[in-house]
Nucleic acid binder design. Structure first.
Lengths: 244, 244
DNA sequence: CCTGCCAACTTAACACTGTTAGCTTCGGCT
DNA sequence: AGCCGAAGCTAACAGTGTTAAGTTGGCAGG
């Protein structure tokens, strides 16, 4: 029976020289070829692939360093088997990120649960967003900083709103307006603006080496505070920009 | 001709299907092998490579679609010749982007020259930044949205300031403070905040399919206006965020 | 004019990537 | 017991960045 002979498994993958030896041991405990799934359990491989990819993505922090062959090796399977469950590499990466960001909305809601004040909720929401993005930088990059961000295959006009719980943000803005904390302009515009601010922080913090020279917390507080003051009804908007 | 047939199958990544035949002819008139340079004129190839790469980058809008072989073919040279002038592909792309963004600062200064009011200058600066980023999206992505943005090889702490004319922005903020249009907090903090806002707009507009549902101009005006109001000394900062 | 030298390239190949066609193998049903 | 199809493998293709080693052709010195 050839299943347990090590050299066979090594030969199966072809040239394995490129991978550093540390990588192999770091992936948790799937060294050899895994048992084939039962008849109806083909879907289990899909989950294992997702787990392994997620692990590698976190580990390398670069989706270009996560290649099909390393994923296959991590699950104990050959590269073509990946394509039984994912159309291509992009679909795989997308699935992993979608999985991670299903918890973004949840994280935000947990953070918001601490208070009932809509304005404070907006601030907590912003901080939670930035924190989450910095905890999962590569996933954030793929979702919101790619060439053409494709969050999911839902109807395209729903993509924007579905991602990052945009509707929940809009609701929060509406509540803030009703509470008198925010000027009564278009809530969607205000929500988009808030998203833009926290995305700007997250994006630059991920990409630019030592971005917030003034410290990240300071900047987040500063920006959210400035934005909140600018949104208040009390700052009478008659005196707009000099001309337009 | 299989190029125009396939309705669904041809997606982004794989084979050469991404290249349409029209692209090849679009590169201006270097079909065959070019004449070898004279003894001292080896540097001329470098410029031709930069030109061709810049052209391809603009054309495809994706730095992963610009490969060494296509650049070499466009210049009329073989792939290894590229490495006589650039250490690797990243260095080549970086050089091209650096070239493009040498004009970012210039574009901004031109835009600012229209007025003497520091507050209005800040707004014009922001608009010019966004416009420039949207005119050169792929270059912007490489410069400010990459995994680890490497603007240039200068001393690392100078990178941030050198890029996008950060010091000029800080100076503008200082002038706005002196003019009484902006509250007298840390100018660097304020400048970083402003950069963050315009980057947030630019970044999302590049990445997210139909990002500003309210229209881009509307959003830019809204955000810069809100930010300006939030920065005014008149919005007394005693009443800060509820708690912290 | 010739001769050699060296800058400016080319040829050929390597290692690695995503991806596909076609074959094997095993679990479960009849 | 037999077979059939799901689950997975073998082998290969086409394309990528990159490098080692060879070639060419213009220019300087004899």
């Amino acid at each position: 029976m050839p299943s347990s002979t090590a050299p066979v498994a090594a030969r199966a993958v072809g040239r394995d020289a490129g991978m550093t030896p540390a990588m192999k041991t770091a992936v948790p405990a799937e060294p050899s070829r895994r048992r084939r799934s039962r008849k109806g359990e083909g879907e289990r491989l899909r989950e294992e692939i997702l787990d392994a990819t997620s692990h590698l993505l976190l580990q390398t922090g670069d989706h270009e360093a996560v290649n099909i062959r390393s994923v296959a090796k991590a699950v104990g399977v050959t590269p073509p088997s990946i394509y039984l469950h994912f159309a291509d590499k992009a679909a795989l990466i997308k699935a992993v990120c979608g999985r991670h960001f299903a918890s973004l909305e949840q994280s935000i809601e947990v953070a918001v649960a601490g208070t009932d004040d809509p304005a404070e909720q907006l601030r907590l929401r912003g901080r939670a967003y930035v924190d989450f993005g910095l905890e999962h930088p590569e996933q954030y990059r793929i979702l919101f900083m790619s060439r053409r961000a494709v969050v999911c295959d839902e109807p395209p006009d729903e993509e924007l709103k579905a991602a990052s719980g945009f509707t929940a943000l809009v609701d929060n803005v509406v509540r803030a307006i009703e509470a008198g904390a925010v000027d009564a302009v278009d809530p969607i515009l205000v929500a988009t603006g808030l998203w833009t601010v926290v995305h700007g922080i997250t994006s630059l913090a991920i990409s630019v080496p030592d971005y917030p020279v003034s410290g990240l917390d300071t900047l987040v507080d500063h920006l959210l505070d400035v934005h909140r003051r600018g949104l208040r009804p009390s700052s009478f908007s008659m005196e707009a920009w000099p001309h337009r």
